[in-house]
Design a binder for these strands. Structure first.
Lengths: 235, 235
DNA sequence: CCTCATTTGTACGTATGTATC
DNA sequence: TGATACATACGTACAAATGAG
């Protein structure tokens, strides 16, 4: 049932090793031939896993040389898609739940229309504030269809990335998406949460994220005060 | 010499057809089996081309059903990587060259350090202003290493996407990158180019883009006034 | 400069599983 | 239920780039 395909097992294992820092940036992964032996799979299987790591930004490949480790994605990875792990695995970054996941009805999500089956399923909605060194950096609102996510509330959104939870618990992975970016002035609510003065420039990000599960989208809206550091992402 | 691998030929042809609107959004591409027959290639070759189209956001795949065309990426595709074509193929979007490509020396690019071989090669630098319906929407600065780009100045940056030119003329494709986003207040120069009042919130984007050519990066800085429309991208 | 082993890139064929309609 | 379509997986072969000698 919940068995992962072999290429995903290899992917998850290598990804874990890289994220855990077992390879320094610039190191070479074992060659494809060696990986085949280690995991007892054929080369196309290993290559598929490596392709994933490339598109996730964990490695680069170079013909005749090998697979070069780029290291765990750095920064506040809100813009990186599958690499958002780093956002919450960073030791000095914490998450404060402003509004715990609750069930709502919905017809639209941050200006994106929701699809009929999503509307029927209802909406899981929650709000979080992310802090870096106890300073608020961004405030985000998330909407998910309430379908096929048993025991979702049990999973610890304070300490785990949403995308990690969806990927490892429910086999839901991001396949693409659409985003809108705005620079706006802080309103009252943002002034309070992000601790900025009135009219301070704020980055706003609306995203509709597609997944491998047909008709299942993640909708999110993020506000970020970028004074000082900027919002970093790999892609 | 300049022969493309078969999977890239299939990719380019299908991409061209989708971008040209030969398929409506929601249409199915021919099945993998049919594509094999059409292009006289094996199924793994077709699948590799389709994988590319998926990761570029042109199609979605669904097991048992087929490859669903999502249509040409819409909006100002500054954030989409390989799909930036749309930005300049849009009929009402035009490009004004503020500063024609010129050769410079460089040691850093928008806060990103440049690598030694790039520094030795020198820097191609240019500035462009993009207009939508004759209204300025964003202002961008680009830096490229001056190596392996014969006759670069001849190619028409006013009417073609930079990424398209690099991909089709020089076989340089984007493999990933890092970006920093900021919300800032407009300074004097931005007030002039983007026609906004002093202190208006502006979106700033610094990017270091990696390519399949080792040691060749594209550095760009983009400023955008997002009042009204927002900056849209697919990923 | 050339040779050679290593490593990744491209391509084909085949087989089987699983989702969709 | 069956036909179709995509997903996964293995094996093979050769090409092209890299780096060591």
């Amino acid at each position: 049932m919940g068995n992962l395909p072999q290429y995903k097992q290899v992917y998850e294992e290598l990804r874990r090793q890289i994220a855990a820092g077992l390879f320094a940036a610039g190191d070479l992964l074992p060659s494809e031939h060696e990986l085949c032996a280690q995991y007892s799979v054929a080369r196309p299987t290993v290559r598929k896993a490596l392709d994933q790591l490339v598109s996730d930004g964990f490695i680069q490949k170079q013909q005749g040389k090998g697979s070069i480790v780029k290291g765990a994605p750095k920064g506040i990875g809100i813009l990186s898609l599958t690499g958002t792990t780093s956002a919450l695995s960073s030791p000095n970054l914490s998450t404060h739940i402003i509004l715990r996941p609750e069930l709502r009805s919905w017809t639209e999500a941050f200006s994106f229309p929701v699809e009929p089956q999503e509307q029927r399923a209802g909406c899981i909605y929650f709000e979080r504030l992310r802090l870096l060194d106890d300073e608020p950096v961004f405030f985000d609102l998330t909407m998910l269809p309430n379908s096929g996510l048993p025991r979702f509330e049990e999973y610890d959104l304070e300490n785990r990335s949403l995308f990690d939870t969806l990927r490892t618990r429910y086999q839901i992975v991001v396949t693409g998406g659409t985003q809108q970016l705005f620079a706006i002035r802080a309103d009252k609510r943002l002034q309070e949460y992000l601790k900025v003065r009135a009219g301070h420039p704020i980055l706003q990000l609306n995203r509709k994220i597609e997944t491998n599960r047909p008709g299942f989208h993640i909708y999110s809206q993020v506000f970020c005060a970028t004074q000082g550091y900027g919002l970093i992402g790999t892609f």
